[in-house]
Simulated assay, not measured.
Amino acid sequence: MRKMRIAMAAMGAVAALTLSACGGDGGSSGGETQGGSAGGDKIRIGIKYDQPGLGYKSGNDFTGFDVDVAKYVANELGYSTDQIEFVESPSANRENMLSNGQVDMIFATYSITDERKKTVDFAGPYFVAGQDLLVSAENTDIKGPDDLNGKNLCSVTGSTSAQRIKDEHAENVNLLERPGYAECVTAMQSGQIDAVTTDDIILAGLAAQPNFKGKFKVVGNPFSEERYGVGLPKGTDQCADINAAINKMVESGAWEEALTANTEGVDYKFNEELNPPKPGDACA
């Protein structure tokens, strides 16, 4: 009987040690994200899957500037790369995905606006983009939106960027729509259109793709301001930590390295008056 009691006590001690080990520092993860668990095994980050140079999925690989910034921030929060679960986050679904806990944060060319801030929070910005034009590398006639009268301008179906140019800059421009920006660039390559319009960094990412490299240039005359933020669930306490991570990425040079790597081979320079960004300590 005495031997049985000793054996049971030993088993209890082993169990206690096992529980203590499991409930210690939670592994290598030192952060806590809204919608996730403190020091959890995974962090779910929303990105685009179809924006080359920003957020792009090819097989099991994820590439782009948004992806690089997301990895850097996640690492600063205590998550290694293999603890990141990237989740496709289409523009129309981003607010719902954050509100429903489908993702912990979103890096997906997500512009900070007062309307969106009613339902979600934003850290950042981590980049300030501007609407611009992509033209052929040899084009010397188009230097800005005012030069588009009589020209064929492409943007994606449902976008307001091309219509903005027609309303505010060149009323005689011919607008063409395609399902995606890649289709616009392909149409320009074949001579069907003269220019493509959307945010400058999206254009640069497209033109940096191997099949387009060296054939196009970003005009470099942005005429809007889009502050890309990190989308977060409303009421988060993560803004200060994420902003600190972005600032560290900028100060270390990793921010510019990531931007350069994802726009390599394109005649593109980010707007130095607005970038690198300088996030504060609170939500944007």
Score class of each variant (00 low, 15 high):
residue 105 M to C: 11
residue 105 M to T: 10
residue 105 M to E: 07
residue 106 I to W: 07
residue 106 I to Q: 09
residue 107 F to C: 01
residue 107 F to M: 02
residue 107 F to S: 01
residue 107 F to G: 01
residue 108 A to M: 03
residue 108 A to W: 05
residue 110 Y to I: 00
residue 111 S to C: 03
residue 111 S to Q: 15
residue 112 I to D: 06
residue 113 T to C: 07
residue 114 D to N: 15
residue 114 D to R: 13
residue 115 E to K: 14
residue 115 E to L: 08
residue 116 R to G: 03
residue 116 R to Y: 02
residue 117 K to Y: 06
residue 117 K to L: 09
residue 118 K to I: 06
residue 118 K to P: 07
residue 119 T to Q: 08
residue 119 T to V: 12
residue 119 T to Y: 08
residue 120 V to R: 14
residue 120 V to M: 15
residue 120 V to N: 13
residue 120 V to A: 12
residue 121 D to L: 01
residue 121 D to S: 13
residue 125 P to F: 05
residue 125 P to L: 05
residue 128 V to Y: 12
residue 130 G to C: 11
residue 131 Q to W: 05
residue 132 D to W: 10
residue 132 D to I: 02
residue 132 D to Y: 10
residue 132 D to C: 05
residue 133 L to K: 10
residue 134 L to T: 02
residue 134 L to M: 08
residue 135 V to I: 14
residue 135 V to D: 12
residue 136 S to P: 04
residue 137 A to Q: 13
residue 138 E to N: 15
residue 139 N to K: 06
residue 139 N to A: 04
residue 140 T to K: 15
residue 141 D to V: 00
residue 142 I to P: 09
residue 142 I to L: 04
residue 143 K to N: 15
residue 144 G to W: 06
residue 146 D to F: 10
residue 146 D to P: 00
residue 147 D to Q: 05
residue 148 L to I: 05
residue 148 L to R: 12
residue 148 L to C: 07
residue 149 N to K: 03
residue 150 G to Q: 06
residue 151 K to F: 03
residue 151 K to V: 01
residue 152 N to C: 00
residue 152 N to W: 01
residue 155 S to D: 13
residue 155 S to H: 03
residue 156 V to G: 01
residue 158 G to V: 07
residue 159 S to L: 00
residue 159 S to F: 01
residue 159 S to Q: 01
residue 159 S to D: 08
residue 160 T to N: 14
residue 160 T to A: 14
residue 160 T to E: 13
residue 160 T to G: 12
residue 160 T to D: 14
residue 160 T to Q: 14
residue 161 S to C: 02
residue 162 A to M: 05
residue 162 A to N: 09
residue 162 A to R: 10
residue 163 Q to G: 13
residue 163 Q to M: 13
residue 164 R to M: 14
residue 164 R to F: 12
residue 165 I to H: 11
residue 165 I to R: 10
residue 165 I to M: 09
residue 165 I to W: 10
residue 166 K to T: 07
residue 166 K to G: 03
residue 167 D to P: 07
residue 167 D to E: 14
